[in-house]
Design a protein around this nucleic acid. Structure first.
Lengths: 165, 165
DNA sequence: TATTGTTATACTCTATAACTATA
DNA sequence: TATAGTTATAGAGTATAACAATA
């Protein structure tokens, strides 16, 4: 039939399963907290936080999508919600008339600030508490490498229109 | 106001962000593969795989839910789909009349087998390829510890009816 | 009274395809 | 012709609450 698939060894399986369970539990807990504290979904929080880390608190729609959302319409939808709630503002980009610049508003920054302490608290309690500083460094290092690798081979579906190939 | 929140250091932030991005990308890719290869959602795959790892390929509904699904109705829904497709069978439990035993069918095992090679392939390509054997061991160890810690402090919402406390 | 599971319902989110407009 | 973004729409998934049955 097709090429034989080398089975995963126990350590590989264990790493994979732990990763999935940890991220799933962590995300679920964080999602709760964000909803309670600021009425935000996780995706919305990521979008606001990404903007907050950007020069001028602004980003083009396409750049804002990176790593957060897997379809263009999904982004339009989420940004639409954020704009409806006054957390974000959309304006035509000056350089490229096709694109839209999204900017964090003061209200958006406020929500971010209101939500952040609880967010950190959850991370401490559920994620970091069980780890030594060395563990954290190692994790950052190893997972950072995986992340870079994954970005190198983008899932065709994630950026449908980035490269035409 | 409230207690000050010690800010996260760069390594902590980096570990957190990498974890989220890696798991999100990985899950998205795997989800695609599972859908293409076997018409399964990730949750459905997890449920089938969990059953496949259990004695008699069987588990009570409540035990099947652990770590996969965060509400009872969600589990009923997913198991309903699997049963509709003949991948799983529900029967009354012998010991406790309230509970339902879910069992993997032959068809369910077949789907699992059909889907697995591609699953492993995706893991290799996107996750394991960038890691040395030592990295994998470390990851399994550290994330395993986090997972154990998280299971110790269950999110109240995850197991609404496990402990009444 | 607590636990197991189901149902109904409402809601959120995502994705595909068709579309407009600009490069 | 390719890219940026929106819209309409359909579908999948989730969660809450009310419920029935058993422990």
């Amino acid at each position: 039939m097709s090429d034989p698939v080398p089975p995963l060894d126990p350590a590989e399986l264990s790493a994979y399963f732990s990763l999935i369970e940890v991220s799933s539990l962590l995300r679920h807990t964080v999602e709760q907290q964000l909803k309670d504290a600021g009425g935000l979904s996780y995706v919305q929080f990521q979008l606001l936080a990404t903007l907050g880390d950007s020069p001028d608190d602004s980003l083009r729609m396409t750049d804002l999508a990176d790593g957060v959302v897997y379809s263009r319409s999904g982004l339009t939808y989420q940004v639409g919600l954020l704009e409806r709630d006054g957390l974000v503002r959309r304006s035509p980009s000056t350089d490229d008339e096709r694109s839209v610049t999204v900017t964090l508003t003061d209200a958006g920054r406020d929500v971010l600030a209101r939500v952040f302490p609880g967010h950190v608290e959850v991370l401490q309690e559920r994620f970091l508490e069980s780890l030594s500083p060395e563990d954290v460094t190692t994790l950052a290092d190893v997972l950072g490498r995986v992340r870079d690798h994954m970005r190198t081979i983008p899932p065709r579906s994630a950026r449908p229109r980035r490269r035409h190939s």
